[in-house]
């Protein structure tokens, strides 16, 4: 039995990483002060790691630590340090952190964050095509229902992640639920299809002959089998 009152576990925390060419105490102080003036509350007692990868001269870590204390920041450690710099940092009481593999400068990470904010809410849209779909043409409604106000010719393909509605004759191929949703259906005014597929299950025209051939129909999937039904 392990003792839950005392555990040591690895965890990931967001830390600000400082990229600075000139690591003299005066230069760091001046630049930090400028940055802090823009958003003092944001950086208050913020844990910071200094990236020393591109540093040429060994910095005075103790002086820098003092600067951080003065500005109400917590200097946690350094990253990207050579063996020599690691020793110096450790002597000043700083942790030597391993650099993560993706060496993304601060600017780029900001851009990525901005991008993720623009994720739209998932809304099932409808793509409406107001013309005949000719042989050789292919229409794909990604993440949407598809409405065709016309005829789908032999050799044409209409594909949708949602339902497909065809107000003319379906002579080509119709593939509904292309993303795998077996609840989607194909509706057509006149069924003369080459192929109908729903979520991967398909029928060729040979198996569509019969009661509904040349008539209006609604095709859905039930227990992994395609089922034809009256449109009305």
């Amino acid at each position: 039995m392990s003792d839950h009152s005392f555990e040591l576990k690895g965890s990931l925390f967001p830390l600000s990483v400082l990229y600075c060419q000139d690591l003299s105490a005066a230069a760091v102080k001046a630049q930090l002060q400028q940055k802090l003036a823009q958003a003092p509350a944001f950086f208050y007692r913020a844990p910071v790691v200094i990236n020393v990868e591109s540093v040429t001269q060994a910095p005075d870590f103790e002086a820098i630590t003092e600067v951080f204390k003065e500005l109400d920041l917590v200097l946690v450690g350094v990253c990207g340090a050579s063996a020599e710099l690691k020793k110096l940092a450790q002597a000043a009481g700083l942790a030597a952190l391993q650099l993560s593999k993706s060496k993304t400068p601060a600017k780029e990470t900001k851009e990525i964050e901005a991008k993720t904010e623009i994720v739209a809410a998932p809304v099932m849209e409808t793509k409406v095509v107001e013309q005949n779909i000719r042989s050789g043409q292919q229409i794909y409604a990604k993440g949407a229902d598809l409405v065709i106000r016309g005829t789908v010719g032999a050799g044409a393909e209409v594909i949708a992640d949602g339902n497909i509605h065809i107000y003319g004759t379906l002579r080509g191929k119709a593939i509904a639920g292309a993303a795998g949703d077996s609840q989607k259906r194909v509706f057509c005014h006149k069924l003369e299809a080459e192929l109908i597929s729903i979520a991967g299950s398909y029928w060729l025209s040979d198996s569509l002959q019969g009661e509904y051939w040349g008539k209006s129909a609604c095709i859905g999937l039930q227990d992994d089998k395609l089922v034809l039904a009256d449109l009305l």
Binding site: Q131, I133, R134, S135, G136, Q137, G153, A154, G155, A156
Partner: peptide, 13 residues
């Protein structure tokens, strides 16, 4: 007729 349908698709695209 099939080939004409194809050409009609080309004309419109």
């Amino acid at each position: 007729v099939r080939d004409s349908d194809r050409i009609l698709g080309m004309l419109s695209s």
